[in-house]
Design a binder for these strands. Structure first.
Lengths: 345, 345
DNA sequence: CTGTTAGCGCCTTCAC
DNA sequence: GTGAAGGCGCTAACAG
């Protein structure tokens, strides 16, 4: 491994001069030496050792991406959920394009993540997942810059930065669309007993649409589903027997559940959207590849990733930040899983 | 940030002693001091600074995961392909469980990856993608331990380690299954003009099955498809008009293309599998969520990830390695996209 | 403009 | 069983 000292010897200058060149302090170096040193750097294919940098308390150029989860809620591996994996890909791209390195870390508790972050002198963190309480304790526990994605914590929290989605608005729009299309009883489905975070916002949007249309929101407008496929499917078999006629549309808080359930219905001989309409949220690959294609709320995951990285870099560079809580826009993608019969009426 | 020196002061011992405790050299420390020091480590929530470790030439505990790709072949973001993203999730899990850190890096050229690896003193690399030539030059350029995933380079290459799949066998089995079920003209489809790597092996397995059944493999048994959706769809519209009757089964080298095409057929009013049977390769989430469900060749991605990490750690620890090129087993998953009419005959 | 020097946190060798 | 000392590669303060 070639070091600054080696370079210095070869170029016949001092290590400091080499360091100055490497760090762009050109005004401190004569044009001649600059050229000479740069040539040597080129030739030798020099790669600076990050250990030295770290120790000298220069930035590590690492951004940690942390996926925070509760084991209990997980059936699929974290990266099997299309949303997370797409996002990770886009985050990596943005981070790399900004000349940073990405360290990926999944964990169930914040302490572990913070340990990792401080061991590596990470310059900033991007955190997916975690509820309001966890976020608050996270921020208390460290002063490394953090940008959360899709979190819903108290916006007044100091140093709280978040890139999210117009979840409320997305759900409100979709629900209004369904109500205006003539659906009478719409179910909103999420995999929690008491929704929080993103799902809670979507539920609120749903309720808001009900209110705006002077309809009474009933407790059975919300249907809690199980994250475990087998349990969920059993539940839906009951649903088919007992409740199919009471709902004419089901609005799922995520595409995966929507498509999985739509298929279950189709397999049971129920026609979608003729007998029951289904919509999702996310617009992931499944919604496009399902038949009928899923009507859903779309979000731009690339934009989410880029925005989060840009925000984080601004914090790191202590630049001015316009908004510390960005809600990216959503759009309704109308496809085939909603009955046009109702719509035509 | 708390350091070894701090710990030493608090415990009233020397830094060396603390270091000995931290590194498990217990025989060098009296039980009493050991307990005292461990208590202090606990209390203070000490996290060792990796910069110091790195510099002292102790392992970095980083494993780099590199996704090597050719921009030209990419339509989806790398992590949007279900296979890669699942694998990344499993790799992260294995790496973390072994007390390593994962640095994720995508890149188009090996030099960049190697630069990253040596800057960070990465202990080992796991590399996805890359053709035989690239692998050879990669191995020449560095002596960091590397495990490739799904590569097909010369097995005799020094320091070449690979975790792959029984691609040949999987394709052979699937093709035999189709032939024995009575299909006359089977097309094998991959997104390359001249398949290489994984796809080439799958094609060979296909050809082998033809040979074993004394059937003549014709050039038009291989169909090259375009990775760009629009182009591909246009091609298939032609196919429907002209070639639909000449094939009775299509065997795609990947689930994504299989499902996407199956849907295109369905949308065109062609019934699958009655008019044409379709099979894939991978057994990803799409194959399970498509209707009809896709008959495909399944692989265990979790196992792939774990095996790769275990192999890499063995190399790092200079342990004995039984096989330096592992082909994980495959299995045919028979679902509904293959006509049972043929099978019954 | 250039070089000398000290120090970042950790590990290891060698004395005690 | 314990500790002092030096060095890993890099940077920044300071002196020339």
């Amino acid at each position: 491994m070639i070091t600054i000292k080696d370079l210095a010897k070869i170029a016949d200058v001092s290590p400091t001069t080499v360091s100055n060149v490497l760090n762009g302090r050109f005004q401190k170096v004569s044009d001649e030496t600059l050229a000479k040193v740069q040539a040597v750097i080129e030739e030798t294919n020099y790669v600076s050792n990050m250990g030295g940098r770290l120790l000298a308390n220069h930035g590590s150029r690492i951004i940690g991406v942390i996926i925070h989860y509760n084991r209990s809620r997980l059936e699929l591996s974290i990266a099997q959920t299309p949303f997370h994996s797409e996002l990770i890909g886009f985050l990596e791209e943005s981070i790399r394009n900004n000349n940073y390195y990405m360290m990926l870390h999944t964990s169930m508790n914040y302490e572990e993540s913070i340990r990792m972050a401080s061991a590596w002198n990470v310059e900033g963190l991007i955190v997916l997942g975690g509820n309001a309480n966890e976020i608050e304790s996270f921020l208390k526990a460290t002063d490394i810059p953090v940008v959360f994605i899709d979190s819903y914590a108290d916006p007044q929290l100091p140093n709280y930065y978040n890139v999210g989605l117009a979840d409320f608005e997305g759900a409100r729009l979709m629900t209004s669309y369904l109500i205006e299309a003539g659906f009478n009883k719409i179910g909103f489905l999420a995999d929690m007993v008491i929704p929080d975070g993103v799902d809670a916002e979507r539920l609120k949007g749903f309720q808001q649409a009900y209110r705006e249309h002077q309809l009474a929101y009933q407790p059975d407008n919300f249907i809690s589903i199980d994250y475990r496929k087998a349990v969920r499917h059993q539940m839906f078999e009951q649903f088919i027997k007992k409740d199919l006629n009471t709902y004419d549309a089901l609005f799922f808080a995520s595409d995966y559940y929507a498509v999985d359930t739509m298929n279950l219905f189709l397999d049971a001989g129920i026609s979608v959207p003729e007998q029951i309409s289904i919509t999702g949220f996310d617009n992931n690959i499944l919604s496009e590849q399902s038949r009928p294609r899923l009507t859903t709320v779309s979000q731009n995951i690339l934009e989410k990733g880029q925005t989060a990285v840009e925000m984080l870099l601004k914090i790191i560079r202590a630049e001015k930040i316009e908004a510390n809580n960005i809600a990216l826009p959503v759009e309704i993608v109308k496809r085939q899983s909603v009955s046009s019969r109702k719509i035509d009426v």
